[in-house]
Simulated assay, not measured.
Amino acid sequence: MATSPFDRSRFVTELSTLCESLDAPYSKQKIEQILNAFDEHLDNSYVWFRCTSKPKDVVNFRLAFHGKFVDTISIETKAGWIDAENPLAITNRSWSSKENAEEWCDFDPSRGIAKNWVYFQRLQPVKEVLSVPGLPPTAASRVPDLQAVGLDDQVNFAAVDYSNKSINVYFLLPGNLTSERVAKYVGLAGSKPVPEEDVRIMSRHMNPMFTFGVTMIPETGHIPRVAFYATVDDAASFGPLQGHDRLIKFYKEAPCLDKKKLEIPCWSYGANDSNQYMKGEASYAGYNEDFSREMFERWIA
């Protein structure tokens, strides 16, 4: 958790500077509106930045509330950003009603709320996650396809994406990736197999466990993209990011107030070129290594 009061003025300045450097859209007024809505929780939040390799794409920021439940949907509806009867909001409430679940948020600094996240303290069965109120039956219809590639009782996070009208389901999986495993995973999104060398690089940074994300359009059950997440020590010098100049710049310039900066690069795959890219996440404030270790230990207990 944050060890000092959240400096709103500094955050607005640093985020605005980062967006300008990366040619990303932002509005200081919108950022202030978001901070006003969550004011009472800022001192105890874990703040991240997120960027993709796509030119001019948004630089999101995340507010995570470790160790406590914050009713983010109520805050967002009170602010007028979402309708409480929005099926995605209902889905998020269904997920967060599970024991000790937490709600987190991703924000677009030019438009407002982008995603609601749910962190599950205990790994969840994908069948249950895709069968909650708010989701049409077409979402649950993909469960056999997910189970067929080994994705079943390992859901550690889920998210609703208001910007893209999609959902994300994340799985905590064992490392030691093989080309065969990766081909099955990316095949869910209609992507071509990943080159052997890329699989070897990914596997080196995804042991003993890693998170794998599946994006789905609930109304159709279509899976447009999947993603692999790794944790590295120096993302700006990370080999797979070479050639992705925007992400390298992001990692070099993203400010961090934590003693240790957490950096997470991600590989995204899909059938369309728009879903073939890399993205990166970096901690800004409130990162607690002990809490993250405890979170992982809960999942594998």
Rank of each mutant, 00 (worst) to 15 (best):
Ala101Lys: 08
Glu32Tyr: 07
Ile248Glu: 12
Asn164Phe: 02
Asp273Pro: 01
Gly221Lys: 01
Gly190Met: 09
Gln276Ile: 11
Lys260Asp: 14
Glu40Gln: 14
Met278Thr: 11
Thr231Cys: 07
Val126Pro: 11
Val199Phe: 08
Arg225Val: 08
Ile73Ala: 12
Ala2Gln: 14
Pro255Asn: 00
Phe250Lys: 07
Glu85Phe: 15
Asn100Ile: 01
Cys51Trp: 02
Val226Gln: 01
Phe38Glu: 00
Phe250His: 08
Asp233Cys: 02
Asp7Pro: 05
Leu177Arg: 10
Arg293Asp: 07
Ala235Phe: 04
Asn176Arg: 15
Lys28Cys: 02
Ala159Gly: 11
Lys192His: 04
Leu257Thr: 03
Phe11Trp: 08
Arg111Trp: 09
Val232Gly: 07
Leu188Thr: 05
Ser283Leu: 02
Gly286Met: 11
Ala64Phe: 13
Thr13Gln: 01
Pro174Trp: 12
Lys279Met: 07
Pro125Trp: 02
Lys279Glu: 14
Ile90Gly: 12
Thr91Arg: 13
Leu88Asn: 09
Asn60Ile: 10
Arg204Asp: 15
Met278Glu: 04
Ala282Ile: 03
Ala158His: 07
Ala139Lys: 03
Tyr251Gln: 02
Val194Glu: 04
Leu88Trp: 05
Ser203Ala: 13
Met278Ile: 06
Trp48Met: 15
Cys51Leu: 07
Gln154Asp: 15
His222Trp: 10
Ser97Pro: 15
Met1Ile: 14
Thr3Lys: 14
Val132Pro: 09
Ser21Glu: 04
Asn275Thr: 07
Ser16Met: 05
Ala271Gln: 12
Glu32Asp: 03
Lys54Gly: 03
Pro137Glu: 04
Asn168Asp: 11
Lys165Asn: 12
Phe120Ser: 02
Asn168Ile: 13
Ile73Thr: 14
His222Cys: 02
Phe65Pro: 06
Asn272Glu: 15
Asp273Lys: 08
Gln29Asn: 13
Ala79Asp: 05
Asp198Trp: 07
Lys184Asp: 15
Val58Met: 06
Gly239Ile: 08
Ser166Phe: 01
Asn168Phe: 14
Lys165Met: 11
Lys28Gln: 13
Thr72Met: 11
Ala37Gln: 03
Ala285Asn: 02
Asn156Phe: 05
Ile300Phe: 11
Gly243Leu: 02
Asp234Tyr: 09
Asn36Pro: 00
Trp95Met: 01
Val214Lys: 01
Ile248Trp: 01
Pro133Glu: 12
Arg111Cys: 09
Asp108His: 11
Val118Gly: 08
Gln33Tyr: 05
Ala282Pro: 04
Lys192Gln: 07
Ser268Asn: 14
Cys19Leu: 06
Ile82Tyr: 14
Met278Leu: 11
Val155Leu: 10
Asn164Cys: 12
Glu253Trp: 03
Pro125Asp: 11
Tyr287Gln: 06
Tyr185Leu: 09
Phe296Gly: 05
Lys115Tyr: 09
Met295Lys: 10
Pro265Asp: 13
Leu22Val: 03
Arg225Thr: 05
Phe157Cys: 06
Pro144Glu: 08
Glu85Tyr: 15
Phe210Asp: 08
Asn288Tyr: 00
Pro208Met: 06
Ser110Trp: 14
Gly286Lys: 13
Ile167Gln: 02
Phe11Met: 00
Met295Phe: 07
Ser292Val: 13
